[in-house]
Measured scan of single mutants.
Amino acid sequence: MMAYMNPGPHYSVNALALSGPSVDLMHQAVPYPSAPRKQRRERTTFTRSQLEELEALFAKTQYPDVYAREEVALKINLPESRVQVWFKNRRAKCRQQRQQQKQQQQPPGGQAKARPAKRKAGTSPRPSTDVCPDPLGISDSYSPPLPGPSGSPTTAVATVSIWSPASESPLPEAQRAGLVASGPSLTSAPYAMTYAPASAFCSSPSAYGSPSSYFSGLDPYLSPMVPQLGGPALSPLSGPSVGPSLAQSPTSLSGQSYGAYSPVDSLEFKDPTGTWKFTYNPMDPLDYKDQSAWKFQIL
Results as ranks from 00 to 15, higher is better:
Met2Asp: 00
Tyr4Thr: 01
Met5Asp: 00
Pro9His: 07
His10Tyr: 10
Asn14Thr: 15
Leu16Tyr: 07
Leu16Ser: 01
Leu16Arg: 02
Leu16Val: 08
Leu16His: 02
Leu16Thr: 00
Ser19Leu: 11
Gly20Trp: 15
Gly20Glu: 01
Pro21Cys: 10
Ser22Pro: 09
Ser22Ile: 15
Ser22Ala: 05
Asp24Gly: 11
Asp24Ile: 13
Leu25Arg: 05
Met26Gly: 06
Met26Asp: 01
His27Gly: 08
His27Ile: 13
Gln28Gly: 08
Val30Cys: 05
Pro31Cys: 08
Pro31Val: 14
Tyr32Ile: 03
Tyr32Trp: 08
Pro33Arg: 09
Pro33Thr: 04
Pro33Ala: 03
Pro33Phe: 10
Ser34Phe: 09
Ala35Gln: 06
Gln39Ile: 10
Glu42Val: 07
Glu42Pro: 02
Arg43Glu: 14
Phe46Tyr: 10
Phe46Met: 14
Arg48Glu: 12
Ser49His: 08
Gln50Ile: 15
Glu53Val: 11
Glu53Asn: 06
Glu53Arg: 09
Glu53Leu: 07
Ala56Leu: 04
Leu57Lys: 11
Leu57Asp: 15
Phe58Met: 13
Phe58Thr: 13
Lys60Trp: 09
Gln62Lys: 08
Gln62Met: 05
Gln62Val: 09
Pro64Met: 14
Pro64Cys: 14
Pro64Phe: 11
Ala68Asp: 08
Glu70Phe: 11
Val72Asp: 14
Ala73Phe: 15
Lys75Gly: 12
Ile76Lys: 15
Ile76Ala: 13
Ile76Trp: 15
Ile76Tyr: 07
Asn77Lys: 10
Pro79Ser: 10
Pro79Ala: 05
Arg82His: 15
Arg82Asp: 14
Val83Leu: 13
Val83Ser: 12
Gln84Gly: 01
Trp86Ser: 14
Trp86Arg: 13
Phe87Val: 13
Lys88Ile: 12
Arg95Ile: 11
Arg95Tyr: 13
Gln96Thr: 08
Gln96Asn: 06
Arg98Asp: 05
Gln101Thr: 04
Gln101Met: 03
Gln104Met: 07
Pro107Asp: 04
Pro108Tyr: 03
Gly109Phe: 04
Gly109Tyr: 03
Gln111Val: 10
Ala117Leu: 07
Ala117Phe: 11
Lys118Leu: 02
Arg119Leu: 02
Ala121Val: 07
Ala121Lys: 04
Ala121His: 05
Pro125Phe: 06
Thr129Met: 02
Pro133Ile: 06
Pro135Trp: 05
Pro135Val: 04
Ser139Ala: 06
Asp140Val: 12
Asp140Trp: 10
Ser141His: 04
Tyr142Asn: 06
Tyr142Ser: 09
Ser143Arg: 04
Ser143Asn: 03
Leu146Val: 04
Pro147Tyr: 04
Gly148Phe: 06
Pro149Asp: 04
Ser150Asn: 04
Gly151Asp: 11
Ser152Arg: 11
Thr154Cys: 08
Val157Arg: 04
Val157Ala: 00
Ala158Met: 15
Ala158Phe: 13
Val160Leu: 09
Ile162Gly: 00
Ile162Ser: 00
Trp163Ala: 00
Trp163His: 00
Ser164Thr: 08
Ala166Cys: 07
Ser167Cys: 04
Leu171Ile: 06
Pro172Lys: 10
Pro172Phe: 13
Glu173Leu: 11
Glu173His: 12
Arg176Phe: 13
Arg176Lys: 08
Gly178Asn: 04
Ala181Leu: 09
Ala181Ser: 03
Ser182Pro: 05
Gly183Met: 10
Gly183Cys: 07
Leu186Tyr: 03
Ala189Pro: 04
Tyr191Cys: 02
Ala192Glu: 01
Met193Gly: 01
Thr194Gln: 02
Tyr195Asn: 02
Pro197Trp: 12
Pro197Ser: 06
Ala198His: 08
Ala198Leu: 14
Ser199Lys: 10
Ser199Leu: 15
Ala200His: 09
Cys202Phe: 13
Cys202Glu: 01
Ser203Pro: 05
Ser203Asn: 01
Ser203Ile: 11
Pro205Ile: 11
Tyr208Ile: 07
Ser210Gly: 06
Pro211Ala: 05
Ser212Pro: 11
Ser213Arg: 11
Ser216Tyr: 15
Ser216Ala: 07
Ser216Pro: 05
Leu218Cys: 01
Pro220Glu: 02
Pro224Ala: 09
Pro224His: 07
Met225Tyr: 07
Met225Pro: 01
Pro227Thr: 08
Gln228Val: 13
Leu229Thr: 03
Gly230Thr: 04
Ser235Thr: 09
Ser235Pro: 07
Pro236Ala: 13
Pro236Tyr: 15
Ser238Thr: 05
Ser238Cys: 15
Gly239Gln: 06
Gly239Val: 10
Gly239Asp: 01
Pro240Ala: 05
Val242Phe: 09
Gly243Pro: 04
Pro244Thr: 04
Pro244Arg: 11
Ser245Glu: 04
Leu246Lys: 08
Gln248Leu: 14
Thr251Asn: 03
Thr251Tyr: 11
Ser252Asp: 01
Leu253Glu: 01
Gln256Tyr: 08
Ser257His: 04
Tyr258Pro: 00
Ser262Arg: 15
Val264Ala: 02
Asp265Arg: 14
Ser266Tyr: 12
Leu267Val: 07
Lys270Arg: 10
Thr273Gln: 02
Thr275Asn: 00
Thr275Glu: 00
Thr275His: 10
Trp276Thr: 00
Phe278Gly: 00
Tyr280Ile: 14
Asn281Leu: 14
Pro282Gly: 04
Pro285Val: 06
Leu286His: 02
Tyr288Trp: 14
Tyr288Pro: 05
Ser292Pro: 08
Ser292Cys: 12
Lys295His: 08
Phe296His: 00
Phe296Ala: 00
Gln297Pro: 01
Gln297Val: 13
Ile298Ser: 00
Ile298His: 00
